[in-house]
Structures are given as C-alpha cells and as structure tokens.
C-alpha cells in the first residue's frame, strides 16, 4: 500500500483524538465520582440508579414517619403510665375509705383528694403531642374534655374517635394514636360513682365493693376499679406492642438504607484505584503517540536532499 504524509498525519490525528476522548472520560469519572455522566453511557446503570434513588428517598421518608410514630407512641405510653399511677392512688384511697373507723370528716378529706385525681385523669386525657390531642381520635384540634366537669367532647364521641394511620413502608401502615375515649369515659364514670359513695355516707363494705371488676351503680353495672385497671393495662400493652413494631421497622429500614446505599455506590460510583491506573496507562500511551508522531511527521525526503 502506498502511504503518504497526509495519511500518516490524519492517522495520527485520529489516534490522538481517540486518546484524548478516553482521557476525558477518565477525567470525568474522577471529577464527578460517577461512572456515567449521561444515560447513554450505560443505560442499565442509569435506570438502576434512578430506581435506587427512589428507594433511598422512600427509605429516608419512612424513617422520618417512624420518628413521628415514636413521638406519638412514647407520649401515649407516658400518659397511660400516669393513668396507672393515678389509679393506684385511687385504690389506696378507696381501701383507706372502706375502713369504717373513718369518720365522715375523714372521708370528706379522702374525697377531696379523689377530686384532684379525677381532674388529673381528665388532664391526662387531654395530653398533646405538639399541637395534637392524642386521645381525641381524628379531631386532633379538640380536647377530649372541654371543661373540668362536663361530659366528653361530643364531636369525638359521635364518630370522630377514629384511628390515625401513617405509612411505615410500601403498603404497610400503622396506627399511631390510641382511642382513649372509652377508657377515660369508664374512669370518669367510676370516679363519679366513688364520689357519690363518699359523699352519700356509704358504709365501708359498700365503698370496698367499688374495688371489684364490676360495680352496681343504681340500675347499671359499670366497671369497677380492677376492671378499669385491667382495661388501662390492655391499652398500654397494645401501645407497647406497637412500639416494638416501630423499633423492628426502624432496624429493618436502617439495614435497607445501608444496602441500597451500597448498591447505589457499586452501581455508579467510580472505582478510583482502577480509574486512576487506567488514566495513568492512557497518559503514557498518549505521550508515546505524541512523541512518535512528532518524529515521523517532521521528516520527509526534503530533510535529506541538500
């Protein structure tokens, strides 16, 4: 084949060009830390990357949702703990009052404390997380008890006493509130009953009867102190179980976050050791091409005919 100067120079130009474009690719990889800069560099990596990003963002959001769930459940647990404490004191007071050695005056004093505890329990029913009343169902703007003595908020008791659910994973939701209206209604009814007993001068055994699972209030049967206590414990156990679920979910999500981050990185992050090595290799090839090119191009027969 006849080889001419223009062939050699165009050949060299082409090779230098290819070499430059390779170096520019490595440079891009090193500068951006990513294997690809546009989808067509590697469609699979690009589309996978988009998927991993969605997964990662979702994961972060679910973790944020779980933090919210935790706040609600922890506050509810705390509130129910206080309810338990108050009920314990009520039991002590009833046991004390059931003793017939008490004078009417003594029972009045016990009753006074009972009133305080009753108010305290109503306050607990109005516990808030941030701006939200936690025992008010979906009416988080309104307290369960609007005043010190009246009945429960009718908006809540007639239909508003619903669960509030948030999403903790794709297709998995969790109830974050506790519908406390029934529990507090029972407590309130019981406290009113005890007050009536104490104020009406009932006998010790009559007062003592209030401690049972059920008490007779006139024609109605209402839950006694033990019944209420059990009720409160059941509700609290449910909260505890949900706290466990949240914890498990948090663990699972943080594990998933690590996995997805790892895959995202494997998928599109530059392998620096490899890329720098490739880059250096390419550099030396490029230099060789330059120096050989310079030597060949500059010489023609002209240089030797004088």
């Amino acid at each position: 084949m006849r080889v001419t100067q223009s062939m050699m120079s165009s050949n060299m130009l082409r090779n230098l060009n290819t070499s430059y474009s390779k170096m520019s690719k490595y440079q891009n990889m090193l500068d951006s830390g990513k294997v690809i800069t546009r989808p067509s560099d590697d469609p699979v990596v690009a589309v996978k990357g988009m998927g991993y990003r969605i997964d990662l963002d979702k994961n972060q959001q679910y973790q944020r949702n779980l933090r919210e769930a935790n706040t609600w459940l922890d506050t509810t647990d705390e509130a129910l703990d206080q309810v338990g404490g108050a009920l314990k004191r009520v039991k002590e007071l009833i046991v004390q009052a059931a003793n017939d050695t008490n004078t009417a005056d003594d029972r009045q004093k016990i009753n006074a404390e009972m009133q305080q505890i009753k108010e305290q329990l109503r306050d607990i029913a109005n516990t808030k997380v941030g701006e939200n009343y936690i025992f008010s169902g979906t009416h988080t703007n309104q307290p369960l008890y609007t005043d010190k003595t009246g009945p429960q908020n009718p908006a809540i008791t007639t239909g508003g006493n619903k669960p509030i659910e948030i999403n903790v994973f794709d297709g998995i939701s969790m109830n974050i509130n506790t519908q406390g209206a029934d529990l507090f209604e029972n407590i309130d009814g019981f406290m009113a009953h005890v007050t009536t007993l104490l104020e009406s001068g009932a006998t010790g055994p009559e007062i003592g009867n209030a401690l049972g699972l059920e008490v007779t209030n006139g024609a109605n049967k209402i839950p006694g102190l033990d019944g209420i206590y059990e009720n409160a414990l059941t509700v609290r156990a449910d909260v505890g179980a949900r706290q466990n679920r949240v914890e498990m979910m948090e663990n699972r999500l943080s594990l998933q976050e690590i996995n997805v981050t790892k895959q995202l990185s494997k998928n599109e992050d530059t392998d620096y050791a490899k890329t720098i090595t490739d880059m250096v290799t390419q550099e030396s090839i490029h230099q060789a091409a330059l120096s050989v090119g310079a030597k060949i191009i500059q010489q023609t027969l002209v240089d030797f005919i004088r």
């Binding site: 006849r2 001419t4 062939m7 027969l301 005919i305």
Partner: peptide, 20 residues
C-alpha cells in the same frame, strides 16, 4: 477513516515520491 485511508493511498500526494 479506513476507506479514506485507502482512498488517500491512491489519491494523495506523497512528498517523498514527488521529490524523487
């Protein structure tokens, strides 16, 4: 480029050849 090379091999001026 491959074909261009072949074409150049036929068409293009070789300075050495012209000098000769």
């Amino acid at each position: 480029l491959e074909i261009l090379k072949r074409r150049n091999s036929m068409n293009s001026v070789s300075l050495d050849e012209e000098m000769t």
